[in-house]
Amino acid sequence: MSLIIRNLTAFTFISCLLLFTTSAHAESEIYTEYFSDLAVSGYDAVAYFKQGKPVKGDNDYSFEYKKATWQFSSQAHLALFKANPEKYAPQYGGYCAWAAADGRTASGDPLQWTIIDNKLYLNYNAAVKEDWLKDAEQFIIDADKQWPGILK
């Protein structure tokens, strides 16, 4: 009998923990992976604009912005971000732009990115990015209408 109670207690605890982390995670303004506070999965948000590709950030060049840690590959990129984070931070907090257009959140993959009108957008995966690019202009209009209300 005590084994059943222990298993039930463990199951209840894990279920509550998952519910809490899912709820807290979904309401974060900036997407970070579970058990991490790194924005853009640790990639340098400025590098997309300056180098035209994703570049891993370095812990030595970190900055906290909107309750997330942003990492950069150089002091120069860190300085640019600090001076104007809204210019470099991905739209919709780094959540998938296609999902935001649909009124929900999904993780944004820093390797599935696009810059449109000097704004960075991330998508969930390559297939979603391909679909999103077919009508990105309309998806952006739709997502802009829904964001940030999705987080509530």
Rank of each mutant, 00 (worst) to 15 (best):
99 A>L: 08
82 K>A: 07
45 A>R: 02
29 E>Y: 10
50 K>A: 15
59 N>L: 09
102 D>P: 03
108 G>P: 04
11 F>I: 13
126 A>S: 14
66 K>E: 13
152 K>F: 08
4 I>D: 15
143 A>P: 06
14 I>D: 05
63 F>Y: 13
94 G>W: 01
29 E>F: 08
132 W>R: 02
125 N>W: 03
111 L>I: 02
55 V>W: 02
91 Q>M: 14
63 F>C: 13
108 G>I: 03
51 Q>A: 12
98 W>T: 06
15 S>N: 10
7 N>M: 09
47 A>G: 08
14 I>Q: 08
27 E>A: 14
29 E>G: 14
109 D>F: 01
1 M>A: 15
75 Q>T: 11
88 Y>E: 11
7 N>R: 08
116 I>P: 00
113 W>A: 09
135 D>A: 11
44 D>A: 10
115 I>D: 10
72 F>I: 05
32 T>A: 10
68 A>E: 01
59 N>K: 12
135 D>N: 14
124 Y>P: 01
62 S>A: 14
73 S>D: 07
23 S>G: 15
101 A>W: 01
113 W>R: 03
84 N>C: 06
138 Q>V: 09
36 S>C: 06
57 G>V: 07
64 E>D: 12
146 Q>Y: 03
39 A>G: 14
100 A>I: 04
136 A>I: 08
101 A>R: 03
49 F>R: 07
29 E>D: 13
35 F>Y: 15
55 V>F: 03
118 N>Y: 01
93 G>H: 06
71 Q>Y: 01
118 N>R: 06
60 D>T: 10
146 Q>V: 06
144 D>R: 01
103 G>H: 03
130 E>G: 04
95 Y>M: 09
16 C>G: 14
20 F>W: 08
8 L>P: 07
40 V>K: 00
1 M>R: 13
32 T>F: 02
14 I>N: 02
144 D>Q: 08
26 A>H: 08
47 A>V: 02
26 A>P: 00
136 A>D: 07
48 Y>T: 09
36 S>E: 11
91 Q>F: 03
137 E>A: 15
94 G>S: 10
61 Y>V: 06
61 Y>E: 07
121 Y>T: 11
39 A>R: 00
79 A>S: 13
65 Y>Q: 13
72 F>Q: 04
104 R>W: 10
95 Y>A: 11
102 D>A: 15
135 D>H: 06
86 E>M: 06
13 F>P: 03
65 Y>G: 12
93 G>E: 05
58 D>F: 02
135 D>K: 07
93 G>A: 11
46 V>W: 02
152 K>T: 15
114 T>Y: 03
61 Y>M: 05
112 Q>C: 11
128 V>P: 04
67 K>L: 05
20 F>K: 02
68 A>C: 05
50 K>M: 12
2 S>E: 15
119 K>E: 11
20 F>Q: 06
123 N>P: 05
101 A>H: 04
87 K>S: 13
73 S>K: 00
106 A>N: 12
29 E>P: 08
112 Q>I: 02
118 N>I: 01
49 F>G: 12
18 L>F: 13
148 P>W: 00
62 S>M: 05
82 K>R: 05
24 A>I: 11
98 W>Q: 14
15 S>R: 02
29 E>C: 07
107 S>L: 08
98 W>V: 00
50 K>G: 05
